[in-house]
């Protein structure tokens, strides 16, 4: 079963990290990913830019509404995701636990089974 591990945290706190802290954290997370990568269980991984750079398209009856930023004011923001292919929910939870150890502090990981999946490749 494929799972999406959705990362939520207070982006104010994440943006308070120094560059060194950020780099160190990314390096630790990279190591955790490696354990899944070597087992061929790791799919796409994405880290999103701050919500301030986001635009929301709100659907309605007429012309959709274009809004600056994310629509809802929340304490934690959606900051990024991993796609993993796990044998069990337990394994997906363990992966998220390992990520949490590598990136301690507040925030949460939502572990969500993937329904539709299409690995289109684009050049970034």
């Amino acid at each position: 079963m494929r799972y999406a591990i959705l990362c939520y945290n207070d982006e104010n706190a994440v943006s308070a990290w120094t560059k060194e802290e950020d780099d160190a954290c990314m390096a630790r997370l990279e190591k955790v990913q490696d354990t899944m990568r070597v087992q061929n269980k790791l799919g796409p991984v994405a880290r999103l830019l701050p919500t301030t750079s986001a635009t929301t398209l709100r659907k309605g009856s007429g012309e959709p509404l274009i809004i600056d930023g994310p629509f809802a004011e929340t304490k934690e923001q959606f900051l990024g995701f991993y796609i993993v292919d796990c044998d069990s929910l337990e394994e997906a939870i363990q992966f998220a636990k390992d990520l949490a150890v590598a990136n301690p502090g507040l925030g949460s990981y939502e572990i969500r089974p993937v329904g539709y999946y299409n690995t289109n490749e684009v050049d970034g």
Binding site: A13, S15, W17, E21, C25, L106
Partner: peptide, 15 residues
Amino acid sequence: MTDNAWIAAALQSAR
């Protein structure tokens, strides 16, 4: 970030 560095970050961002 080590040990309680996340507290420093949380305090800084809450300031």
